[in-house]
Amino acid sequence: MERVPVLKIGDILLVSIQIDMEDQVALQLQEDLADKIVVTGCHGVIIDISALDIVDSFVGRTLATIASVSKVLDADTVVVGMRPAVAITLVELGLSLPGIRTALNVELGMKLLAQEREQYELDLEDEDEEPAVSTR
């Protein structure tokens, strides 16, 4: 059975799905990612689906589960690169992927994760202190 590789880049796990996945492969990916999040301690997951020409309800459900599991393991998930035709089809299918954050491409996805993380750390910092001043 084929396997979807999970790459670690800095604090982010990057998954680029390049094959027409069998259901088993999708489930395997779900497991691999959970393991990898724990092992690496990463706080962000980016799933690039720009090579997928369809997303059916099974893949949609798997993505939603991955996002929920990651959340429990303290990692944010962003699905990036959904094709327009796929998005239109999902709307027609009635699948709105609740709970999944999306971005147009990997770059914007990384930005989104960075913002989330920054916000989270700001919140952690002393709440009595003045809000952190922009560093830029």
């Binding site: 959904m82 239109i88 999902l90 709307v91 027609e92 709105s96 954050r101 999306t102 996805g109």
Partner: peptide
């Protein structure tokens, strides 16, 4: 509405 939802699915 569908366009808006589709755009949201794509992250816009």
């Amino acid at each position: 509405l569908k366009t808006v939802v589709a755009a949201r699915l794509m992250g816009a």
